[in-house]
């Protein structure tokens, strides 16, 4: 019996998508003083005093501020460090 040979046609396609980004969001709280929050931001995020003050004001006035955006593992680490300063830090997937 004839054995027909069928050569399968294989197509490959590479799909490269950037890794999803995560936001570290700090929520306002009634306990920590503004100056304390600035010191915490400078220490954890390694940013200037001026930038820390800008973020602190945003937290205070808007109730929340995204203080860092990037890959998940680093975001988790920063959120934990902010929690260790007793700030209300949460992780959110970047929209």
């Amino acid at each position: 019996m004839a054995n027909p040979k069928i050569k399968p046609e294989i197509k490959t396609e590479s799909v490269v998508a950037p890794a999803p980004k995560w936001n570290v969001v700090v929520l306002n709280d009634p306990i920590n003083f503004t100056g304390y929050v600035v010191v915490a931001f400078v220490s954890v995020l390694r940013i200037s005093n001026g930038e820390a003050k800008r973020l602190m004001r945003q937290v205070h006035e808007d109730g929340r501020a995204t203080v860092w955006t990037g890959e998940r593992e680093r975001a988790e680490l920063l959120a934990l460090e902010l929690q260790q300063w007793h700030l209300s830090a949460v992780l959110e997937a970047d929209a």
Binding site: T34, G35, Y36, V38, V39, V42, N49, K53
Partner: peptide
Amino acid sequence: QSLVLQLDPEAFD
């Protein structure tokens, strides 16, 4: 607050 002022006098607005 006393400690923050000693650490970073400019931390408070």
